[in-house]
Amino acid sequence: MDGDVGHLNLSISELENLSNDCRKHIVRMIHKAGAGHPGGSLSAIDIIVALYGTRLRFDSSNPDWKDRDRFIMSKGHASPAVYSILHEMGFLSETDLSTFRTLGSVCQGHVDMKWTDGVDFSAGSLGMGLSFGLGCAISARMDSSSRETWVMVGDGELQEGQVWEAMMAANFHEVDGLKMIVDRNRIQNDDFVNVQMEIGDVASKISSFGWNVKEINGHDMGEIVDALKWASEQGPAPSAIVAHTTKGKGVSFMEDNPSFHGKAPSDEELSLALEELS
């Protein structure tokens, strides 16, 4: 059966609708849990939806299928974004989503491969996912498999030195099956990235490590889909997409607001958010 699993090839409008549904899941989950990270989930969700909707080959009835494409969510605090798409793709039930962050839930605070079908990495400590993805991509090449490995990192996460160790190694080993997406939402835990420790021209830095790089608007579905396809076709160097995004995208009072990096909406804020997303 495995060889028959293909891309979903959803249309732009289908993807946009799916994103909107996911945004609603995201704010509901975090509100119910009373904790979580809405800002980075909302900035990342359009890209994640486009990935699942057009590029990743997976099978929700066989989550461990060896030749599935891997999605490594390195910014694991944005777990609601992942859980929302896994729900839409048939891995998780609505009930699963409602247990987010509670004892025994398959929806752990940070994405965790040990707990959740469809999750390929145990995140939560920033800076590790690209290295893990590199290991997956090297293994795929050793296995002569065409499976791809997509890693999403945050921009604040690029302050971690390990990410650059991984970039250097991926280029040296010409691991073209490795694809990185930077969610450049310009905000980290405490404040704006340029206040905490600015990371500068991310695209040219990554390019100087030998990667193919493309910059896009991470909320323009057409641009995202084209960029994902572009990244898939590059080689022999690995490829990166620097996606310029807005933290909290889609909920006006969360947009570009550092205080919604890791804060749950109140009852009233949830109503407002759902109203804006309806």
């Binding site: 800076g127 590790m128 996912g129 290991g135 997956c136 090297i138 293994s139 795929a140 030195g161 390990q162």
Partner: peptide, 28 residues
């Protein structure tokens, strides 16, 4: 050599590359 991965003086990266390979069915 085809089953050896040289990662340079970068131990943190090496540990997670190993983890990724283990998740892909290798025994690193």
């Amino acid at each position: 050599p085809e089953r050896t991965v040289s990662l340079g003086i970068a131990e943190q990266n090496m540990m997670l590359v190993a983890a990724g390979m283990a998740s892909s069915g290798k025994i690193p």
